[in-house]
Design a protein around this nucleic acid. Structure first.
Lengths: 205, 205
DNA sequence: AGGGCACCAGAACGAGTGTTCATGTTGTCC
DNA sequence: GGACAACATGAACACTCGTTCTGGTGCCCT
């Protein structure tokens, strides 16, 4: 399984696929999709340029595949966290945010690629991945709706609150450094509270 | 002056400079810094490729110049708004957020370029622009500190709250469409409230 | 009148791009 | 043992890139 740290893609049936995908995320993340070359990816995956095309038919399909892995991992973590949480909206939201923050911290580069380089995909791939992302967002929106309906979230702007929360969480990837002052857990706790406060939920003090 | 809508750069002493800068923002914003070519910029500015080099010595210096204009405009709007606000932290924050949201809405593309393409600058230019951005962020941090000190903002995480607020506001540029359901004013109001709620300020209800 | 300066454009250069091709090598199933 | 698929490679192709070069306008200043 994908554990807390290390590469995003652990293994696939094919010999070098995981290495290529991870190298792609690394390259696209640090230099951007257009700034990174297939030669960079090949170097990072420790294979030859032409061999990449035995695994992926084009650069943009490679990006699409990498983003599919990232989305799947993120979605899995969030659904698992919500599953384990209580039934009330605040604890469900809390756990969902904590899981999302955890993913962003563990896979900062993948998060950056997912938010910045989506637009370089072919229209069909982009549409499919946007749908994926919207599904994740919908999970948050449902929790917000639940809390709004039962009166725990008192914000008058429930419709856009989930998007606001998710964008802050994603932005963590742009500044977080693992050797910085904030640990994984503190950060998750902090953003869970930001989220509940933004929703105008009553907070323990 | 730069009004509510239209191009970011209004005019400079030189004949085509503004057109080039605006075309650069447009090109870099829609295709990314590495995805857009100097030929694209020239086409957008309705001039020749080689003429660009009479105004800017290189592609990355052109990006730097465009971002300097964007930063100056953003900073000017925020400082003016804070100036006009009352002395208390909530109204100062409210007006600062409203001004920032206004800039993002008016110059979505410039905002996207400023957040996504900063990394492609030469180290010196990037450092200078990061300093600019941090100065803007510091304005928010000071307001947060003021409200924390006098007890109106009760969040225990005042240190990171400004960054959280600013990242949500910047992210508006990724999804806002002027023909969408939300008007400029409603959006500003909404995000001002998000910001105050996140800071755990008492809210009129 | 004429020198200088700001502005402009077309052609070219060398480097790097994504992708394809031809050609192995390896291991696995009948 | 031999066919076949999966995996691997270096060389090449057609193209685009940022930048420079060469040459040329028109306008202002003295």
């Amino acid at each position: 399984m994908n554990t807390r740290s290390g590469a995003l893609v652990a293994d696939t049936g094919r010999r070098n696929e995981a290495a290529i995908l991870n190298a792609a995320i690394q390259a696209f993340g640090t230099q951007g999709f257009n700034g990174a070359s297939m030669r960079d990816v090949a170097r990072g995956a420790d294979t030859s340029l032409s061999n990449l095309y035995n695994y992926f038919p084009s650069k943009s399909k490679l990006l699409a595949a990498a983003l599919r892995h990232a989305n799947a991992e993120l979605r899995g973590r969030i659904l698992a966290a919500v599953e384990l949480a209580g039934d009330d909206a605040p604890s469900r939201l809390r756990e969902a945010v904590r899981a999302h923050v955890g993913f962003v911290v563990d896979h900062r580069t993948a998060t950056l690629v997912a938010t910045n380089e989506l637009r370089y995909l072919d229209p069909e791939d982009r549409a499919a991945l946007v749908e994926d992302r919207d599904a994740t967002q919908a999970t948050f929106e449902q929790i917000v709706a639940q809390g709004s309906a039962d009166g725990t979230f008192r914000t008058p702007y429930a419709g856009d609150a989930a998007r606001a929360i998710l964008s802050t969480v994603a932005a963590i990837a742009t500044w977080y450094r693992p050797d910085g002052p904030l640990g994984r857990g503190q950060l998750a706790e902090q953003y869970a509270r930001f989220a509940l406060a933004l929703l105008e939920a009553p907070l323990a003090r």
